[in-house]
Amino acid sequence: MKVKTKKTYKKKIIIVLVCLLVLAGIYGTVAFYQDWFPFVKDKNTSKDVNGIDYNLPTDEQKQAGERQKKSTAEQNPDTKTNTSQDQNSNSGGTLQVTITANQNGNIVQIRSFITKISSSGTCNITLTKGSSKVTKSSGIQALPSESTCRGFDISTSELTAGNWQATIVVGIGTQTGSATKLIAVK
């Protein structure tokens, strides 16, 4: 009999506890969406007269920074044990080159982007259309995250309307690379 009484008491406590937890869960869900306690958002923004935000960064801002940080993490060169290619290395290999083109009026702008940062080297472009051929050369400009040929803006007086095949050959030290693109000249 004693045992039976104890069992009934325990059951009641459990049921009450479960109900309380379910209710707390419902409140929590509603509170989250309605910004009730404990999810009240701090709306007290602090900006000075010049509109500079002196608040703590938001989670989104921090997470975006964190992703960037981790995507650029690199080994301490002082403790590096492998022999990965250094950017300053001029050892032979293939340069990756891409071409974009755009026509602004009577100027056809052909751009090339090289996945190596260098301000020396040469670019040679050859445009062919049937038996027509146009060639140009330029140096290389280093950009913050790549390099580009210092050209090419070609007048439509040199390129008749139609499809031209453009091939750019880039040489930086012993490294070379090339890309080809069909360009529609209007």
Partner: peptide, 9 residues
């Protein structure tokens, strides 16, 4: 000086 696909210069 940091290419997207290579170590920095």
């Amino acid at each position: 000086g940091c290419p997207d696909t290579a170590p920095c210069d």
